[in-house]
């Protein structure tokens, strides 16, 4: 498998990236770790005359743990997420999810930004970021803007990011309470049959807040407001779980693939969701 030829660019700063994007328009693509894009190029399913490698761009790295918010540079790898002690304490769901992505070598290359910006419904980070109510920083020649993760995804590979914009960072409000990232897959290296990101806060014996998103069950990640709402104020008992599950099942729209038909996916989605909620609740 050999990709078509392309011109390679490795700009040092964001201005350089933006200039290239302006110059080449649709002919240019930015690449972080490349583990989504390169296979597509090798299969000649993606034609990229100008490839802009972000590896040397200043200011895209780093994990910052603030008092209220966490900032992840777009080029932070899954491996860095897994190995960061401060992050494991501040937002342990990130580590739990990252460990369930691909395999060690791929996690060494795979980045937060790439996983998020690519728009592949199979990617795990988008749903996770929706659960955490993250905001994505987009920089274009027209300036900087932030888009909420929950507003970012439009369809498979279609996002709110304009072609000439670059996703540079993710800002996550520090999560409270218990968490879980539950994923069913066929094997290591597979996308999810169904995956659920759950973050729940508890007050007394009742659920104070709950954020729930699921992965690979629609052409975008699915943040279900209804599923979260179904838990709030309850003791996360069987009835609440059923209500949350029902709400989520109303929001997902899986399609058949090699992992199985729609009925199976909907059933597994419900099971995985319940398990994630129960685990998150037990940690809340």
């Amino acid at each position: 498998m050999i990709p078509a030829g392309f011109e390679y660019h490795r700009p040092r700063d964001l201005e350089g990236v933006l200039a290239l994007l302006d110059e080449h328009g649709d002919d240019a693509r930015v690449m972080a770790g490349g583990h989504s894009l390169i296979p597509m190029m090798k299969l000649r399913m993606a034609d990229v005359p100008h490839l802009i490698d972000l590896q040397a761009v200043d200011g895209l790295a780093g994990i910052e743990i603030g008092a209220d918010e966490i900032r992840l540079g777009a080029m932070v790898t899954q491996t860095e997420i897994i190995g960061h002690a401060g992050l494991a304490e501040a937002a342990p769901i990130l580590r739990e999810a990252a460990l369930q992505i691909a395999d060690p070598q791929v996690r060494n290359m795979g980045t937060v930004g790439g996983n998020i910006a690519n728009g592949d419904p199979g990617n795990d980070m988008p749903g996770l970021m929706q659960c955490l109510d993250a905001r994505f920083t987009l920089v274009g020649s027209g300036g900087v803007r932030e888009v909420a993760a929950r507003e970012f995804y439009e369809a498979a590979y279609m996002t709110a990011r304009e072609d000439e914009e670059v996703l540079t960072a993710v800002t996550i409000p520090r999560p409270a309470g218990g968490h879980a990232y539950e994923k069913q897959k066929r094997k290591i290296g597979d996308y999810a049959t169904a995956a659920a990101a759950v973050q729940i806060a508890k007050e007394g014996r009742a659920c104070a807040s709950a954020a729930i998103a699921m992965t690979n069950l629609s052409d975008t990640p699915v943040f279900s407001e209804g599923a979260g709402a179904a838990l709030v104020g309850t003791a996360v008992d069987a009835a609440a779980l059923a209500a949350a599950s029902e709400a989520m099942l109303g929001d997902i729209d899986p399609t058949e693939d090699n992992r199985g038909p729609v009925a199976f996916k909907r059933h597994v989605a419900g099971v995985i969701l319940r398990r994630a909620i129960e685990r998150a609740w037990s940690r809340a």
């Binding site: 069913q184 066929r186 049959t193 992992r259 199985g260 038909p261 009925a263 199976f264 059933h267 597994v268």
Partner: peptide
């Protein structure tokens, strides 16, 4: 016997 086919067996036997 991948996940969905095992699930289908269980489903057809009324185990869900």
């Amino acid at each position: 016997h991948d996940h969905w086919r095992i699930w289908k067996t269980a489903n057809e036997l009324g185990l869900h």
